[in-house]
């Protein structure tokens, strides 16, 4: 669940470790270069070293911005998923009530919408596959659809508006 947000979080963690190493290196070089310059004055060799150190510091700053954006994207992902979940839950409850599913049918229907097949649902509910198949048939009939994909599509169809979805994607890209 929430795999995308997790992987963003994972990336942020790895980059943080890299950033930490870079910060250490930048500090060591900065102190070293400062010491060298205090000792020997700013020759051409030390100017180059100073330049390299400043570049490293710049890299750390940019890295920090990058980690921040990863963290924020991860949080946004999670917030979106939470919001979508809330809305999806409400929609499912509304439809199930409308179709007058029994409690057992509602349970089976949830698993079916999540994409589980008959064998998996039967195993999860500890019932026979024949029972689940019969329940699914009744669910399809009440929902006015003919198949598993049809049931899922009922929800997807209502949730996804191609026009606005594609427009948003254009904005991002």
């Amino acid at each position: 669940m929430q795999r995308a947000a997790r992987s963003l979080e994972h990336k942020a963690l790895i980059l943080t470790l890299v950033l930490g190493c870079q910060a250490l290196a930048a500090t060591f070089f900065a102190i070293d270069v400062a010491g060298d310059i205090a000792e020997a004055g700013l020759g051409w060799h030390l100017s180059i070293e100073l330049g390299a150190t400043l570049a490293l510091v710049g890299g750390v700053v940019l890295g920090a911005f990058h980690v921040r954006s990863l963290i924020e994207r991860g949080r946004q992902d999670q917030a979106l998923i939470a919001a979508a979940r809330g809305a999806m839950g409400a929609l499912i409850r509304a439809r199930f009530a409308e179709w007058r599913l029994t409690t057992a049918e509602a349970d089976v229907a949830i698993f079916a919408i999540k994409g589980l097949d008959v064998a998996e649902i039967a195993a999860l509910r500890g019932s026979a596959q024949g029972t689940v198949r019969a329940q699914l048939t009744r669910i399809y009939a009440k929902a006015g659809t003919a198949s598993h994909t049809g049931l899922i599509a009922l929800f997807m169809d209502e949730l996804i508006d191609p026009a606005s979805t594609l427009a948003e994607q254009g904005e991002h890209g």
């Binding site: 950033l19 910060a23 250490l24 930048a26």
Partner: peptide
């Protein structure tokens, strides 16, 4: 001590650009 300096510097930078 230098390592601590680096980590503190990173935290202070983060105080400007972090979440």
């Amino acid at each position: 001590g230098y390592a601590l300096t680096g980590m503190l510097a990173l935290r202070l930078l983060w105080g400007l650009v972090g979440p």
